[in-house]
Design a protein around this nucleic acid. Structure first.
Lengths: 160, 160
DNA sequence: CTACGAGTTCAAGCCGACTTGAGGTCAAGC
DNA sequence: GCTTGACCTCAAGTCGGCTTGAACTCGTAG
């Protein structure tokens, strides 16, 4: 298998040609040359695209991803940096798990107002969904979670 | 505690006033009236904002969230719909967990190229990070994950 | 030789969730 | 009575990650 044109890369990865050009422009992938105007890609780009997709699926920004990949597609970051990313993901997972439980519970809990249900409240608290001192029963607080979002002042709850 | 002005709601929730106005405009929250020009909010809005934050933290779009809340802040969706959301979250969690493992592994795996490492490859596969038939060793495929993102053609990997 | 279709560039558009800025209103304190 | 400052509206801007469209260039099949 020799070098591929953009259509083949697109076909084999499901990544649209426009996206591939965009990624190249951003320096995430590189074409190995041209035939006429047309880009030629080394098959290794498929692997690299898999890693990029992995990062995207993990919710990382393209910039972060390119910071993690060496020119040849090897993970570049040191152990600490990768572990930090893993930890970040870990916190996200915790949060999402709590939210999932809240939803499951809300689906069958008969309480009139969800916030009156201790189970639900607990889930909300674990979700770290903002710092609210909501009235009913004892007040609860949670540290604001801030998941890699640009300049935010106070409690950020965004996942993305 | 009687009705609050926007500043108080903001202070108590950490949600900026601009965001509160935006949410009102979108119909996610409602002010209970005005004093002069100024909005007045019922304390119940705090609870509603907590639920909104919960949804945001779960990665749901504002539209989805408002579809889940009754005018008074009660979860509105039927059991099936809520369960479906929970399932969606579940899949996301699975994916993120796989990615976290991939990162942890990559942090200490000595393999020259990550894709040569079976453990890593497995993680990538579980992450469903695109459908790639990458060269080395046996090829693998994964169904494209599509996480509630607007019109996308082929394999979408976005989480957000 | 020419037409075709797949590729190219560059600028502009889109989506969601907000933020920012200019300019206006109004209740309260001096 | 006048200033102050918190609040208001409305339009426009921002950010990331792409997509879209117009206008162009090639290699190749007929």
């Amino acid at each position: 298998m020799k070098d591929m044109d953009i259509a083949e890369v697109s076909r084999r990865t499901g990544v649209p040609a426009s996206t591939l050009r965009y990624y190249e422009e951003k320096g995430l992938i590189a074409s190995i040359g041209r035939r006429g105007l047309r880009r030629l890609f080394d098959p290794a780009v498929l692997e690299r695209l898999a890693l990029i997709a992995l990062g995207r699926a993990g919710g990382f920004a393209l910039d972060e991803i390119s910071a993690m990949l060496m020119p040849d597609g090897l993970p570049k970051m040191d152990r600490e940096r990768l572990d930090a990313k893993a930890d970040e993901l870990d916190r996200t997972i915790q949060r999402l798990t709590a939210i999932r439980e809240a939803l499951r519970h809300a689906a069958r809990c008969p309480a009139a107002r969800p916030m009156e249900c201790p189970t639900f409240r607990r889930a909300v608290r674990l979700a770290g969904a903002g710092r609210f001192e909501v009235a009913p029963i004892g007040s609860f607080k949670a540290e604001a979670v801030s998941v890699t979002r640009h300049r935010r002042k106070t409690s950020d709850v965004g996942l993305e």
